[in-house]
């Protein structure tokens, strides 16, 4: 039986700069636990905008957002920051790491912020995640010294560190060559299949989308399928 993990009701969003226009129009969608969902659509159709809303980073919209049976609209920014820290892992198109810190420290920081485990425990967990992504040997390198593909894998390890409910990726392979894209895709696939991880990924890559569990297509701020 499929249980709903994330649910939106009538989400609308407007931008007012330089002129008012509606980016998202009455979005109703459900994401099931453990599925690998891809979000596709033409450039400018509103995919990124939607993903930022789902990740709770942008709460300036109309409608309702519910994750893990919790209504998130109207919650305070501090509460949402904490919620994001604990339950949402985000992977960006550009491998966003803190450049002065090592790969290991980058993975550890969200867990240190959460403060659920001791520093030693967090360190072993972080090493496990790096190992899962096959870059444990790079752990002590300063992140700015890693290759693009390696950095993206560190970013995925970081997204996993607090065992989140959902991982969201905005074109996570968009900036990678085909080999690294394959590695990232395979990792996502493995996470959903073996660990029951829920993943939403925005992509332009048709091949990528076709091999996910389900694809949602957007056009002009509406979900078409």
């Amino acid at each position: 039986m499929k249980s709903v993990l994330l649910k939106t009701q009538g989400i609308t969003k407007y931008f007012h700069d330089p002129y008012t226009f509606q980016v998202l129009k009455d979005i109703d969608m459900e994401v099931y636990k453990g599925e690998f969902l891809s979000l596709v659509g033409k450039s400018g159709s509103g995919k990124s905008t939607l993903l930022y809303l789902l990740s709770t980073m942008d709460m300036d919209f109309g409608g309702k957002l519910n994750i893990n049976s919790e209504e998130l609209t109207g919650k305070s920014p501090d509460y949402l920051a904490r919620f994001r820290n604990e339950h949402i892992g985000f992977v960006f198109q550009f491998h966003f790491l803190l450049p002065e810190f090592t790969a290991l420290e980058n993975v550890m920081i969200p867990a240190l912020k959460l403060g659920k485990f001791s520093e030693a425990k967090i360190k072993t967990k972080a090493m496990e995640k790096l190992d899962l992504l096959g870059i444990a040997d790079q752990a002590s390198k300063v992140s700015s010294k890693l290759s693009g593909g390696q950095q993206q894998r560190v970013a995925i390890a970081r997204a996993l560190i607090n065992d989140p409910l959902i991982i969201m990726g905005d074109e996570p392979t968009g900036n990678l060559d085909s080999i690294n894209s394959k590695i990232v895709f395979d990792t996502f696939k493995r996470l959903t299949r073996d660990l029951g991880q829920t993943i939403i990924a925005v992509t332009h890559d048709e091949d990528f989308a076709s091999r996910t569990d389900r694809t949602i297509e957007m056009k002009d701020g509406k979900i078409t399928s």
Binding site: D78, R82, F83, R84, F90, F96, L98, P110
Partner: peptide, 16 residues
């Protein structure tokens, strides 16, 4: 700026 964006995206609040 970039670091701040990462920190906020990974769950650091404004006050942090």
């Amino acid at each position: 700026m970039k670091d701040i964006a990462i920190l906020k995206a990974t769950g650091f609040a404004a006050k942090d």
